[in-house]
């Protein structure tokens, strides 16, 4: 257990309070409680309680307390905070293709916590096609036309086709 008062305690309290409100704490937002983001980060890394987790973004570190949100959810918030919709869609798809495994319905990005618009999603998927880094991300569609994404690193094409059809059509026909 870290100290109960003092600068580190204040940092942790701020992170926990943000997490309780279901938002990440960017290191830059810790500045009033520490001289600068770097020293805040150093203090947290040196002695924060185990519930305080860090995710390193492209320009920023983000903190959360896993007492209030799971790592899986924090990842979604992190990807949203990074404001890179192409990466958000690709990484979310990769996670699902790997974990469950299953393809990801594109429509899921319309819903919370992503709450993207259809044009945003369409633009991101279109952009993805020309970026080598996302070459593993493929699309498949169910017989009702619904579009799914999957990562070829984790799912074969035939399997992804079959699963998309099952999730989208089969399961609804077999309630």
């Amino acid at each position: 257990m870290a100290e109960e008062t003092g600068p580190l305690a204040a940092l942790m309290e701020k992170i926990r309070a943000d997490s309780a409100e279901i938002r990440l704490t960017p290191a830059s937002c810790l500045v009033p409680l520490a001289p600068d983001a770097e020293s805040a980060a150093a203090a947290i890394e040196a002695g924060a309680d185990a519930d305080i987790k860090m995710m390193r973004g492209s320009a920023e570190r983000y903190y959360f307390s896993d007492r209030s949100m799971t790592e899986a959810y924090a990842k979604h918030l992190y990807r949203l905070a990074e404001r890179d919709p192409v990466r958000l869609i690709a990484d979310t798809t990769r996670d699902e293709s790997k974990t469950y495994p299953r393809p990801t319905p594109v429509a899921a990005f319309l819903e919370s916590p992503f709450s993207m618009t259809q044009p945003e999603i369409d633009a991101a998927i279109a952009a993805m096609a020309s970026i080598q880094e996302y070459a593993d991300i493929r699309t498949t569609s169910a017989s009702n036309g619904a579009l799914y994404l999957y990562s070829a690193t984790h799912l074969g094409a035939a399997h992804a086709d079959g699963l998309a059809e099952w999730i989208e059509v089969g399961q609804k026909e077999n309630p």
């Binding site: 279901i22 209030s68 949100m69 799971t70 790592e71 899986a72 959810y73 979604h76 974990t99 469950y100 299953r102 319905p105 899921a108 819903e111 919370s112 916590p113 999730i167 399961q171």
Partner: peptide, 21 residues
């Protein structure tokens, strides 16, 4: 069905459909 702060996993087929809003 949808990501929730408390959940590690989700499923698009889940009947746990409640969510904020």
């Amino acid at each position: 069905k949808n990501p929730q702060p408390w959940a590690e996993y989700t499923s698009p087929s889940s009947r746990w459909t409640a969510k904020k809003g």
